[in-house]
Simulated assay, not measured.
Amino acid sequence: MPHSSRQAAGMAAEQQALDFLLNKGLSLLARNWRCKRGELDLVMLDRDTVVFVEVRYRLHAGFGGALGSIDARKQEKLSLAAQYFLQQESHWANHPCRFDVIALQGSGHSGQPLDWLKNAFDS
């Protein structure tokens, strides 16, 4: 898939994940939040819990698919970015936090079921 098509598919997957979470009652705090430590796809609020959501889209299930792509290195990177977010947005620092993953797989993913893994890993 050409870079622009891949990028468009990733953006569409992220929008689908955001719509899904908003429909589940979560509120958006930040989208594509960037820092020197990396990027957080979605930062949501689930009641009083700050939720760092990694959205993963894969066309094929090879190499573990979308869920399998969150390895220890990626988890560490997300954890560092989340810590930096909480330092920069200190009013959220005393709230409970968790890391969720939303995985979408296959072509034409818009409207197709997604996997929402709550508490996907510990920081």
Results as ranks from 00 to 15, higher is better:
D122R: 13
S79M: 03
A66K: 01
F85V: 11
P113G: 08
W116Y: 13
L117H: 13
D122M: 10
L28W: 02
L28H: 03
T49N: 04
G106W: 03
N94M: 09
Q105E: 15
L67M: 14
L22G: 04
R58V: 08
A81R: 01
A82I: 04
M1C: 10
K24Q: 15
R98E: 14
H60F: 07
D100Y: 00
M44L: 07
S110M: 09
D115Q: 06
D48E: 14
S123A: 15
W33T: 12
G10Y: 00
G62P: 01
W116E: 08
R98P: 08
F85N: 10
D19P: 02
F121E: 03
D19M: 07
A81S: 11
L117E: 11
A82G: 09
L80I: 04
D46G: 00
L80A: 10
R47S: 10
A13W: 00
R73D: 11
R73S: 13
L22E: 05
L42M: 09
L22H: 02
G64V: 07
S69D: 12
R58Y: 04
M1K: 10
A66C: 06
F85T: 11
L117T: 14
R47D: 10
Q83N: 12
R58A: 13
A9Y: 00
A120F: 00
G25L: 02
Q88V: 11
G62L: 07
D41Y: 03
C97E: 00
Y84Q: 15
K118P: 12
A93L: 08
S69A: 13
C97M: 02
H109W: 00
G10V: 08
G106E: 06
